[in-house]
Structure formats: structure tokens, C-alpha cells
Amino acid sequence: MDRSNAMPTVLHAPISPADIAPFKIGDVVYISGVLYTARDKAHDRMLADPHLPFSLQDACIYHSGPLIVKEGDTYRVVSAGPTTSARMNAQTPSIVKQGVTAIIGKGGMSQEVARSFAGRCMYLAFTGGCGMLAREKIVEVLDVYYAELGATEAVWKLKVLNFGPLLVAIDSRGDSIYETVRARSHERLLRLIAERKRAL
């Protein structure tokens, strides 16, 4: 299918597993609705918390430590791009088991994570460093959880509109752009090193 002239696909979060099923690596989507930011400490807290203050069922997790400042009683989002997702590799299969259907981040995740998706989750790449672009798409700060972890590590519940562009980089079947790139670049690495050895 030629998507070049198609209207961009907008998913509404929370997202059901049925909604993510059609998407394949290489597709571009946008998300409107609710995102929960979570990074290292928040993942540990969510997994240890028997009484989660929010539901992970069909939730969209955003790997981000946003720069948000409190002004009076309201929060102002200053810059809110994605953080390196690989740091959350270890905890992610357990998070997926709790019903998370979409993870937004940058830099990719491991093959173990890709395998854990098993038809019920996908990984969406947001361009790293693009904190201002993300800011433009955040409509409202709805809530903050685990604030004692500090503003960077806390879970922020954000209302977003047309958040993206997001590239489906690991789909629900577990196909991963990162794995393809990693395998090909490894072949090239070995070839370059071998050529170098011959030259010496």
C-alpha cells in the first residue's frame, strides 16, 4: 500500500491490542489521548506497587523524563522528548504483561522485549532530542504519580494531540527495524575489521 498520500493514522490512547495488530514496522502513526511517562525508577516502582494509582491496561508508556516546571498550581511543559529505551529492557516484558499496548521511546529495545510483545504491544520511535516538537503536541498535564522520585523520574499523565510522527520500529509480531540494522551493521563491522587485519 502506498501511504505517501494517505492521511496520517491517528491512534487514540488507551489503545486496544486489536487496534495495534494491523501495524507493521515502517508505518508512521500519531497518537492522541493519554500517555504515561516512565523511565528507570518509575518502572521499578510500577512493578513493585500492589496498588497502582493508574491502570496499565491498554496504556501507552512514553519513555521520557520531561522538563516540566510548576507555576503556581499548574505545570508548564518546557521540553519533553524521548529518553533511551534500552535502559528499560529488563523491566519491559513485565510491564507488557500488565497490559501496556504501546511504548514510545528512542534508540530501540532488545530482542527479548520484541519477543515479549506477542501480539499485544508495539514500540514506536520518536526522534531523539526532539523535546520541543513533543512539547507542541502535549495539550495538558493531567496528573503526576510517584512525585517523590523527582520531576524527571516521576510518572506524568499527559494529554496529547497528534503526538508524533512515530515510526513503528518494533511491531506486535516482534519484527524489529533495530534488529535488521544491528545484524547488517555487525556484518559490515566484521568485514571492516577483517579488511584492516589484511592491510596490516
Partner: peptide, 19 residues
């Protein structure tokens, strides 16, 4: 996308990256 983000940051005088 990066270049668009850079433009937004410059215009707003805000950090291009949250880190």
C-alpha cells in the same frame, strides 16, 4: 524532524532537548 525541532527551540528560546 531534528531540523524542525531545532527551529522550534531557537524561535522559543527553550531547550531543544529535555535532557
Amino acid at each position: 524532524t531534528i531540523l524542525e525541532n531545532v527551529k522550534l527551540a531557537g524561535a522559543a528560546g527553550l531547550p531543544m532537548c529535555q535532557d
